[in-house]
Amino acid sequence: MSWLVLVLSGVLEAVWAIALGRSEGFTKLVPSLTFAVALVLSMAGLAYAMRELPVGTSYAVWVGIGAALTVGFGMATGGETISAVKVLLLCGLIGCVVGLKLAH
């Protein structure tokens, strides 16, 4: 259960990061509220997962999922340039996250 919560928390990390960017310095209400709710839920899930999983592994998986999804979303929506190098590095990041799970 902790791994599932951790993965969902990593997804919520991407949600709050994207919402933060769209809030324009907290001047837009809906993205600002989305940021706040996703942030709290993401942190709560990370804290829950850390009750059973090592801190370092939990944090690395959480950040890795959030970063990969945030950059992937940016590339999908045109906010980030797409390059073979970026795609390769994202695949490496995802591979590292999977590796941490398998090594646990």
Rank of each mutant, 00 (worst) to 15 (best):
81 T>D: 15
73 F>C: 11
80 E>Y: 09
63 V>M: 08
9 S>K: 01
100 L>E: 05
49 A>S: 12
41 L>S: 08
20 L>E: 09
92 G>S: 10
25 G>F: 00
90 L>D: 11
79 G>Y: 01
22 R>L: 15
6 L>E: 03
3 W>G: 05
39 L>W: 08
79 G>E: 14
95 G>M: 00
14 A>Q: 06
74 G>T: 00
23 S>M: 05
37 V>Q: 12
39 L>T: 14
60 A>R: 02
95 G>D: 08
68 A>V: 07
104 H>F: 00
79 G>R: 07
40 V>K: 02
30 V>K: 04
42 S>G: 03
94 I>R: 12
46 L>I: 05
26 F>V: 06
10 G>M: 03
66 G>L: 03
72 G>R: 05
102 L>G: 02
33 L>D: 11
85 V>N: 15
76 A>T: 10
36 A>G: 12
75 M>V: 06
43 M>V: 15
37 V>R: 12
73 F>N: 14
96 C>I: 15
39 L>M: 14
52 E>Q: 15
80 E>N: 13
20 L>Q: 09
57 T>A: 14
15 V>R: 00
61 V>Q: 06
83 S>H: 09
78 G>F: 02
69 L>A: 06
48 Y>I: 10
17 A>Q: 12
17 A>N: 12
37 V>M: 11
79 G>H: 05
49 A>F: 02
71 V>D: 10
52 E>I: 02
51 R>C: 09
10 G>P: 05
42 S>C: 01
83 S>P: 06
85 V>C: 15
88 L>E: 15
65 I>N: 06
27 T>F: 06
27 T>P: 07
84 A>L: 14
17 A>V: 13
12 L>Q: 03
21 G>W: 02
100 L>S: 04
61 V>S: 08
53 L>M: 07
40 V>D: 11
76 A>V: 05
3 W>E: 10
18 I>V: 15
2 S>M: 00
98 V>M: 07
28 K>L: 15
3 W>M: 06
11 V>S: 04
30 V>G: 09
19 A>M: 08
9 S>A: 15
49 A>D: 03
38 A>W: 03
61 V>I: 14
100 L>C: 07
93 L>V: 13
68 A>G: 08
37 V>L: 15
70 T>P: 14
65 I>T: 09
50 M>I: 09
16 W>S: 03
102 L>P: 00
59 Y>I: 06
87 V>R: 11
21 G>F: 02
103 A>K: 06
26 F>N: 10
71 V>W: 12
20 L>T: 07
58 S>P: 03
88 L>Y: 14
100 L>N: 05
14 A>G: 11
57 T>E: 13
31 P>T: 02
95 G>K: 01
88 L>S: 15
77 T>Y: 04
69 L>Q: 04
69 L>W: 01
69 L>R: 05
87 V>S: 14
93 L>H: 09
8 L>Y: 00
46 L>W: 03
18 I>Q: 13
32 S>Q: 02
8 L>Q: 01
53 L>V: 05
37 V>N: 14
88 L>N: 15
38 A>R: 03
20 L>A: 13
79 G>I: 00
25 G>C: 07
61 V>H: 05
62 W>V: 05
10 G>R: 06
45 G>R: 00
44 A>P: 03
90 L>C: 09
3 W>T: 08
95 G>T: 00
4 L>A: 14
14 A>Y: 01
23 S>R: 05
